[in-house]
Design a protein around this nucleic acid. Sequence first.
DNA 1: TTATTGCGCAAGTAAATGCTTGCGTACATA
DNA 2: TATGTACGCAAGCATTTACTTGCGCAATAA
Lengths: 111, 111
Amino acid sequence: MEARRDVFQAIADPTRREIIGMVAHESLNVNALAEKFDVSRQAVSLHVKILQECGLISIRQQGRERYCEAKLEGLAEASQWIEQYKQFWMDKFDSLDKYLIKIQSEKKTDK
Amino acid sequence: MEARRDVFQAIADPTRREIIGMVAHESLNVNALAEKFDVSRQAVSLHVKILQECGLISIRQQGRERYCEAKLEGLAEASQWIEQYKQFWMDKFDSLDKYLIKIQSEKKTDK
DNA sequence: TTATTGCGCAAGTAAATGCTTGCGTACATA
DNA sequence: TATGTACGCAAGCATTTACTTGCGCAATAA
């Protein structure tokens, strides 16, 4: 289980997406996280490790516990990749991001 | 190679992301697509099949050729998932592109 | 008609993925 | 100090993945 590891790979797994969703709301330690899934603690621990390696969560060690905190900016790369195509299926952007608005207006001549 | 197949899974593979990028610009038949990659035509053909099954491209049969056309709205699901977290990191940076430039320069070890 | 091209369908393979169980270790609490 | 708790490491295993080569067939060019 050691190979190409990027954000796209990380969020490809539904369990990992769930983990992200959970720690986005509140910091959770590995066991607390594991309790919410049907799979073993080890399995969850591995997902956590992968998410950490991909920069999507960070670990805060506190005593013997390891709290997982979301680092959602790690999603930016994937977000940008998708955003570049968004204009093709949406007429209107409700995003406030200046960069995206800029790109949108630049490519309005397309299509 | 038959199992869980969703959009996240589909875009997890870099070759498939490249294929999407290519057919987003122009319709290409399988062979034309295959020529642009190092892998065999069969491999590309399989990626195309997967992308089609995930609703990210559609095939237009024309004689013996099969033209791949992007169906970028298929990305909406993934887009929405990421979008829900966007607010959590957008205010952390002046702009998205600044951050992307940062991670791109960090990713020199790629491939 | 015959040769060539475009492409899908296997079948086979190596590597990656997801998960499990067993074990060791650091931290806590009785 | 003895015991329980949080969690990583590692080995083992069934699948899935990404590819490859070989074959066959329909559409097209010679």
